[in-house]
């Protein structure tokens, strides 16, 4: 807590309170770990919340099989370094059906490999609470999301049927089969996250830092060819560009930005000068208006 500004200290303390509350009140919680910067911060807060003990819940990664290779390496290293249980779940049914962002498009791929995969994993292990790293400032439809977001036994999210949240008193009661998604970073902004990563020296995936990478330009986005599975269009040749990523996901769906920011300080400086939002790099949001809201109703995190 030493080098943090007042407002980061406050955010940190509030998130720790939320994480402890879930561990106290739920039978079988899990932390969704998506490997990105937000997940890294959330995990760091969980380590702090229970120190000197380890967090009393496992990590879960829903692997779509199309994540950047560096993400998977980082994931396994992190679990090992911190000595935590990591559950990796892949929607095998989707794999058998050959669902992929290349063959099926972003909508179907995300629905099957991410949304359905997540539901499968939650059902399989009977988790009654799942932490996620989403922030309210990411997207308009998230601005009204609760810290404790109630889901029906079918993982449905009904925006009109969410519980009011007063003070820091969270209603954690659920019936068998129902569950709660918990967002400890609700009140953090993208800038808060990076400043906290810097102040606390939290490791993040190297893809956030600028480096020469092989990319192709598609629909205005710079897509990195992370492996041979991304077919090249006739005449298309990957070019080496100095790029980095503001958000991480499935590599064919994640746009890079031209950047020279090779350190955390550079990233923060670049963000302060930025004129676009971080979600701009995500191809899945721009499918249609209100698309995030629609995905959430169906059980997307």
């Amino acid at each position: 807590m030493s080098g943090l500004s007042t407002h980061l200290k406050r955010l940190e303390a509030e998130s720790i309170q939320i994480i402890r509350e879930v561990a106290s009140e739920f039978r079988n919680p899990v932390m969704l770990y998506s490997i990105g910067k937000d997940s890294s911060v959330m995990l760091h807060l969980a380590m702090k919340a229970f120190y000197p003990a380890k967090p009393p819940f496992p990590l879960l990664h829903v692997d779509t099989t199309w994540k950047f290779r560096e993400m998977i390496e980082f994931r396994d290293e992190t679990a090992k370094r911190l000595g935590l249980d990591l559950i990796v779940h892949i929607n095998e049914d989707g794999v058998r059906r050959g669902v992929s962002p290349v063959a099926s498009g972003s909508n179907v791929h995300t629905q099957v490999m991410k949304t359905e995969g997540l539901r499968q994993a939650l059902d399989k292990y009977g988790f009654d609470a799942a932490f996620g790293g989403a922030r309210r400032d990411e997207e308009k439809s998230r601005a009204k999301e609760r810290v404790f977001s109630f889901r029906t036994a079918n993982h449905g999210w009904d925006p009109r049927n969410q519980r009011p949240e007063l003070w820091r008193l969270y209603n954690t009661r659920v019936k068998p089969g129902e569950s709660i998604r918990v967002f400890p970073l609700s009140n953090w902004t993208e800038l808060d996250v990076w400043q906290y990563v810097l102040a606390e020296e939290i490791p993040v995936v190297p893809l956030y830092f600028a480096k020469e990478r092989p990319v192709v330009r598609r629909d205005g986005a710079l897509i990195m060819r992370d492996d041979e599975r991304l077919p090249l269009h006739p005449g298309e040749v990957p070019e080496l560009r100095r790029v980095r990523f503001r958000t991480l996901g499935c590599y064919p769906l994640t746009g890079a930005i031209d950047s020279d920011a090779a350190s955390l300080e550079d990233i923060i400086a670049e963000m302060l000068a930025s004129t676009t939002s971080e979600r701009q790099g995500r191809l899945i949001d721009s499918d249609e208006a209100g698309s995030m809201e629609k995905k959430k109703r169906e059980g997307y995190f």
């Binding site: 500004s5 007042t6 407002h7 800038l191 400043q195 810097l198 102040a199 923060i268 400086a269 302060l272």
Partner: peptide, 9 residues
């Protein structure tokens, strides 16, 4: 940059 990380309430 310094402003952005300074003591802020």
């Amino acid at each position: 940059l310094a402003e952005s990380v300074a003591e802020k309430s």
